[in-house]
Nucleic acid binder design. Structure first.
Length: 465
RNA sequence: GGCGACGUGGCCAAGUGGUAAGGCAAGGGUCUGCAAAACCCUGACCACGGGUUCGAAUCCCGUCGUCGCCUCCA
């Protein structure tokens, strides 16, 4: 069984083979930290978190690097506007994003490089490109020479000639070609700067990722990821820079997530149509967003609206219901019911893996988990005991865990369970005597304590709420 | 204008040659002291028009529409 994934570079699904057996070098472009992150950023982090978790589930060791761009025009602009130190401003948004990553249950990357802390590497990278003739200094700036790069444009499918026709490119006398892009920008008065062989200044937008990726993961990596709005120019330029420098293929697979759509268009800082992560999490639990992401293809635009949030929220409850214990009174299910469940366990695992192996088809895999839930519930209704549901529920826990969902909201259930069962037992006697005031009191008081009881013809079940 | 993606039941969304997963919503039923949940049943001429094929949602061409990139962007 092999994993396949869609490679933007070739525009088709390819069999996934790593440079080093069993090891995945993964670099994901993180946010530019100049304002509050929104759920679109969260989507991207979730997409790659799900991929990483699955690759690890399939036995790979994943070396995960995500950068923060903390030196940038917008940060400088904003710091001037707010009269704050740019480093301090960036730092505060980085801390906020780190907090979001924890809230969203995203596995920490192994390294979070920042532009401000990698200046030596960045300057070294630029110098290397200048030495090889792929870049040229011009009045304190340094530009990449696109005409020297034979296959410039191959990621985004553009030709230099086409792009010139677009006429949206600034004419800059200092550039040899209009598409040449800045590797180093000379500092203007009042701007933060770093020293370099070309004078004081700061890096251009794209060179940081090349430098940091080469530094932390080596000349060649397996997966380079980010939002599909980064394909051009950011990733195109990263390829140009990195491959011109090393003479080797930079990343084997380029993986891009689709954009979060709010009222029919891309959610983005510049458009102003956004829902911040803080906003979202104040009204919904983190798994709701994760389930929204899981329920569609990572490459497609993700519809964000109240209906979708509601559906994800309900779907999450449904998954949780699958983990409810058997009815306390149950004596055991029929052989047929138990066999049906065992068979479902078998097919679910296989189907889940087959779906996820196919370019991380999480929506398909999720569908199989819902199938499993339905059969678990039916088997519980049929009188299965806790032990008889155990395997199926363990699988449900395992596979939702691979998705990064946290269905068991409260721990400590193990200690409380016998006492709750005892209360249910007593309450059953009270119900038989039709002492409903007392039975309702028990149910209400338990609800206040965080335990929901639910009666059915087959008995009473409970869950933490 | 250039490059690319997409258009599947009320909503979201899998499926990319053999006759349509799943979730939410809706209706009916079972169960039921109440509440809640669960289970069963009900629904798609796969944007439109051509073509290829024994057979297409799935491949090809065209039309319409939506979205992304081409400027900062996850």
């Amino acid at each position: 069984m092999t994993i396949s994934l869609y490679n933007t570079l070739t525009r088709k699904k390819e069999v996934f083979e790593t440079l080093e057996p069993g090891v995945v070098r993964l670099y994901v472009c993180g946010p530019t930290v100049y304002s509050n992150a929104h759920v679109g950023h969260a989507m991207s982090s979730l997409v790659f978190d799900i991929m990483r978790r699955y690759l690890e589930y399939r036995g790979f060791q994943v070396k995960h690097v995500m950068n923060y761009t903390d030196v940038d025009d917008k940060i400088i602009l904003r710091s001037l506007h707010e009269e704050r130190d740019p480093h301090e401003l960036a730092e505060s948004y980085i801390r906020e994003y780190e907090e979001h990553l924890r809230s969203l249950n995203i596995l920490p990357a192994h390294i979070y490089p920042r532009v401000s802390q990698e200046m030596g590497e960045i300057v070294k990278t630029i110098q290397g490109l200048v030495d090889k003739g792929y870049a040229y200094p011009a009045g304190g700036d340094v530009y990449f020479r696109v005409q020297k790069d034979d296959d410039y444009g191959r990621l985004s499918g553009r030709r230099l000639d086409d792009m010139q026709a677009g006429a949206r490119i600034d004419i800059d006398e200092r550039k040899e070609h209009p598409m040449d892009f800045a590797l180093w920008k000379a500092a203007k008065a009042g701007e933060p700067f770093w020293e370099s062989p070309w004078g004081n200044g700061r890096p251009g937008w794209h060179i940081e990722c090349s430098a940091m990726c080469l530094h932390h993961l080596g000349d060649q990596i397996d997966i380079h990821g980010g939002g599909n709005d980064l394909i051009f120019p950011h990733h195109e330029n990263e390829i140009a820079q990195s491959e011109s420098l090393t003479g080797q293929l930079f990343s084997r697979y380029w993986v891009h997530n689709g954009m979060m759509q709010l009222s029919g268009e891309k959610m983005s800082k510049s458009l102003g149509n956004l829902v911040t992560i803080t906003d979202f999490l104040s009204k919904n639990e983190a798994d709701v967003l994760r389930l929204m992401v899981l329920n569609s293809s990572y490459r497609s635009p993700l519809t964000f609206n109240d209906d979708v949030i509601e559906a994800a929220s309900k779907g999450l409850e449904r998954l949780r219901n699958g983990l409810r214990p058997a009815f306390v009174e149950s004596a055991g299910a029929t052989t047929e019911a138990k066999e049906a469940l065992a068979k479902q366990v078998e097919t679910t695992r296989a189907a889940y893996i087959a779906a996820m192996d196919d370019d991380f088809n999480s929506a398909g895999a999720l569908g199989h988990l819902f199938d499993l839930v339905r059969v678990i519930n039916a088997t519980r209704d049929a009188g299965a005991t806790v032990a008889e549901l155990a395997d199926a529920q363990a699988l449900l826990r395992e596979l939702t865990g691979v998705f990064g969902l946290t269905l068991d909201k409260q721990t400590g259930g193990a200690e409380a369970a016998p006492f709750i069962d005892l209360l249910i037992e007593i309450r059953r006697e009270l119900r038989a005597q039709k002492l409903f005031a007392l039975t309702d009191q028990i149910r209400d008081r338990l609800a206040e304590l965080g335990v929901t009881l639910e009666d059915s013809k087959d008995g009473t079940t409970w869950r933490f709420n």
